[in-house]
Amino acid sequence: MFFLDLTYQKPLTEVERYLDEHNQYLEKHYQSGNFICSGRKNPRIGGVILCQFDSLDEVKTIIQEDPFLLHGIANYQITEFCPTKAAAKYNDFLS
Rank of each mutant, 00 (worst) to 15 (best):
V59P: 09
T13D: 04
T7K: 15
G33D: 13
A88H: 08
H71E: 13
V48A: 13
D54C: 11
Q31P: 06
R40E: 06
I36F: 09
N42G: 06
G46I: 05
E58Q: 15
S95F: 12
I49T: 00
D5Y: 08
S95G: 14
K89S: 04
L94N: 11
F2E: 02
D20P: 01
G39E: 07
P83K: 11
P11V: 00
H22L: 03
R17K: 14
K41R: 15
C82V: 15
G33L: 08
Y90Q: 06
P83G: 06
D57C: 05
D20L: 02
C37W: 09
D20A: 03
F53P: 05
P43F: 04
K60M: 06
G39M: 09
T84S: 12
Q77G: 14
S55W: 05
E58V: 14
A87E: 07
E80T: 03
K85S: 10
Y25F: 14
M1Q: 06
I78K: 01
Q77R: 15
I36L: 15
Y90C: 03
I49R: 01
P11F: 01
I78L: 02
I45G: 06
Q24H: 06
E21I: 00
L50E: 05
C37I: 13
F93L: 15
G46V: 05
L19Y: 11
N91G: 02
N75V: 14
I62D: 09
D54F: 07
K28W: 03
D92E: 14
I78N: 01
V48C: 08
K85P: 00
Y8M: 01
Q64E: 15
T13K: 09
I73D: 01
Q52G: 07
V59N: 12
Q9H: 02
H71P: 03
K60P: 04
P67E: 06
Y30M: 07
Q64S: 13
L50Q: 08
E27A: 13
Q31T: 11
F2I: 08
A86Q: 07
C82Y: 14
Q52M: 13
N23R: 14
I45S: 10
K89M: 07
E27S: 12
L26R: 02
P43H: 04
Y25V: 00
P67S: 09
E16D: 12
A86D: 10
L56R: 13
R44W: 04
F3G: 02
H29Y: 15
A74G: 02
T61L: 11
T79E: 03
L4V: 06
N34C: 13
Q31V: 10
S95E: 12
I73W: 02
A88S: 07
H29Q: 14
I73V: 15
Y18E: 05
Y76Q: 10
